[in-house]
């Protein structure tokens, strides 16, 4: 906006300026008076309510300082519950194998299984049973030779489940000739399948 040479805004006359000065003088000289009682409240009540946004309310709720009092009597039970929940969270999933989960190898569920391999001529020097139950480790299941019966024998404690195994005769894998359930091992050999079904139904 540009003013004329008298400093007057365009479209305004000298009369307009005089009227402004007169009104300003009247306001300055008017007696001071307090608003009527309840005026502010009535004005505020007349305004439409303005609800802050959900995000603003959440931010205010989160950032509002709170006083928390710690006393040993209150802290200890909370800590105890937290420790229990943590322990449950850490260890429970590992124990939930479900119906198809592997059996626990703990004492009460183990069954005694007797492995026997005939060798009347006593030609073998060492014989072991290697299987899924001993991670295929020969040293874990070395058999002893029963010279009276002419057989190699091993009694092992196995958990319930179906296990695959072979004999290891002087380092060579040999299939169990008496096995009635077998499976190709993918290497050209035949594993025997041993089913252990619990304490009272030892093996098949």
């Amino acid at each position: 906006m540009t003013n004329d040479t008298n400093g007057r805004a365009p479209g305004r006359s000298a009369r307009d300026d005089a009227l402004d000065r007169m009104i300003a003088e009247a306001v300055r000289n008017a007696p001071e008076a307090s608003p009527p009682e309840g005026f502010s409240a009535r004005v505020m009540a007349g305004l439409p309510p303005m609800r802050p946004s959900a995000w603003l309310r959440l931010r205010l709720w989160l950032t509002r300082p709170r006083s928390v009092t710690f006393t040993p009597a209150r802290v200890l039970p909370v800590l105890a519950v937290a420790v229990v929940l943590l322990a449950v969270g850490l260890f429970l999933p590992q124990g939930m194998d479900g119906p198809g989960g592997s059996a626990t190898p703990d004492g009460p569920t183990l069954s005694t299984v007797r492995f026997v391999l005939g060798d009347e001529a006593a030609t073998a020097r060492t014989v072991s049973v290697i299987g899924s139950f001993n991670d295929w480790k020969a040293v874990a299941s070395a058999m002893r030779y029963d010279s009276d019966a002419g057989v190699w024998v091993l009694e092992a404690q196995l958990p319930p489940g179906d296990h695959e195994y072979m004999f290891l005769v002087d380092g060579r894998p040999v299939a169990d000739p008496g096995a009635r359930l077998t499976r190709d091992d993918g290497f050209g050999n035949t594993n025997a399948i041993l089913i252990v079904n619990g304490r009272h139904e030892e093996t098949l």
């Binding site: 989160l62 950032t63 509002r64 709170r66 006083s67 928390v68 009092t69 710690f70």
Partner: peptide, 9 residues
């Protein structure tokens, strides 16, 4: 013992 904190923390 008293501490003032906010839920944002």
């Amino acid at each position: 013992m008293k501490r003032r904190c906010s839920l944002i923390l």
